[in-house]
Simulated assay, not measured.
Amino acid sequence: MINGIIVDLITPTHADGSPDYETVEILVDWHVTNGSTALIIGSSTGHPAYMNTEERTELLRRAIWQADSRIPIIADLSSDTIDHAFELADVANEYGASAVLITAPTDKTYSENELIEHFQTLAKASQCPAIIRAESNLNNLLAPESIAELAQSSSINGYIDGSMDNSDATTLLGINLPQDFTLYAGHDASACQQLLAGYGGSVSISANVNPVLLNKLFTLTQSGDSAAAEALDAHLQTLYSALLEDPNSIPIKWALVEMGCIPESENPPVLTQASDYSNLRRALRAAEIPI
């Protein structure tokens, strides 16, 4: 399975809100150059709710085409309906995604058995390795026993822990999981401790901006150098907070423009308050990211 820092890639858009496919291709190349482990395409960070099926299909197609087997592309199957999720699974199969991401439904509360069936059915339909996710702040949270059951499915190879409580990591690491099943940290702020505890990777939003530093963090955790890893993590905490201040990924888009990674469009990303620009600039400079 995929081990390392997986980038929850943003989706740059044009002024009318449509995906900017050319800039997505630029970002794919940039992440290849900077050694990112893998890219998630069309996740909540990429605002799939604002895209129709054709746009999500083209977004995934262009990302896979641009990656050209140089970096794994993970297709997010998140959708308001199960039928649409099956459509997206077909798209992932057709274009050759390396893996798919399946998130627990959010439209209503499901029983544990219904959640298990949801994940197993979509994973089987995807025909490629599946990573599953259930956010801790939502109703449909998987119990450890259910994760253990799902891990036995040959088509399910990883679980993203959406909790920031390190005691949950201890519980999950105590489950008898298959050797090729990977646990991933789901939040930048707590990822370091979960990686040190034994997780095999992290799904990161801030890696949109600082993949090199986060890859260094991952290497330190895997080598067991906890002191150096924790020091680097402390160094990055201010950046994590600054990048996640706005739920619409505007700070990340703005930072990438300032870094020269993506072109400034006719409608550049605007932060809510002018003071936020200086806060974000300070955070980027503190992390030694040139702007």
Rank of each mutant, 00 (worst) to 15 (best):
L232P: 09
S275Y: 14
L232A: 08
L243S: 06
T221C: 13
D233V: 05
G260N: 00
P247T: 02
A229H: 03
A229L: 03
I262Q: 00
Q222C: 13
E245S: 15
L195C: 07
G200F: 01
N248M: 12
I262L: 03
T219R: 10
N215T: 11
E245Y: 12
V209D: 08
P269N: 08
A242P: 06
Q237D: 10
D246W: 01
L220W: 02
Y240M: 06
A197M: 08
K253M: 09
Q194R: 13
N208Q: 06
Q194Y: 06
L196P: 08
T221R: 00
L236A: 05
Q237K: 10
V270E: 12
L271Q: 10
A228G: 10
T221D: 06
L244T: 08
E230L: 15
D246M: 01
Q193V: 09
A228N: 09
S202A: 09
Q222E: 11
T219H: 14
L256H: 00
L244I: 08
V209Y: 05
C192M: 07
A207I: 00
E258W: 15
F218L: 06
Y199Q: 01
Q193T: 10
V203S: 01
V203Q: 03
Y240C: 05
P251I: 00
G224D: 06
A231S: 15
V203K: 06
I250C: 06
A242E: 02
A227Q: 11
S241C: 08
P211L: 02
Q222V: 10
L214M: 13
E230Y: 02
A228H: 09
Q237V: 10
A231G: 15
V212D: 13
Q194T: 10
K253C: 07
Y199F: 09
G224E: 02
E245W: 11
N267H: 15
A234K: 11
L256G: 01
G260F: 07
I250Q: 11
T272F: 12
S202W: 12
L214S: 00
I262S: 00
P263N: 00
Q222Y: 07
A274W: 10
G224W: 01
E230G: 15
C192H: 05
N210Y: 13
E264S: 14
N208W: 01
L256A: 04
S204A: 07
S204C: 03
D233W: 04
Q237P: 07
Q194L: 11
H235L: 11
I205Q: 11
L217S: 00
A229V: 04
L243N: 08
T238N: 15
A231P: 13
E266S: 15
I250L: 12
L232F: 08
E230W: 02
D233H: 14
L220R: 01
M259P: 05
P268V: 04
Y199V: 02
C261H: 14
L232I: 03
S241M: 08
P268M: 06
I205N: 07
K253A: 08
E266Y: 12
V257P: 00
T219C: 13
Q237W: 06
G201M: 00
A228V: 07
N215Q: 14
C261A: 15
N215R: 14
N210H: 14
S249G: 12
A207M: 05
C261I: 15
A255W: 02
N208P: 07
D246I: 00
A234T: 11
L256K: 00
H235P: 05
V270K: 13
G198A: 13
G260I: 05
L239V: 02
S249Q: 11
C261E: 14
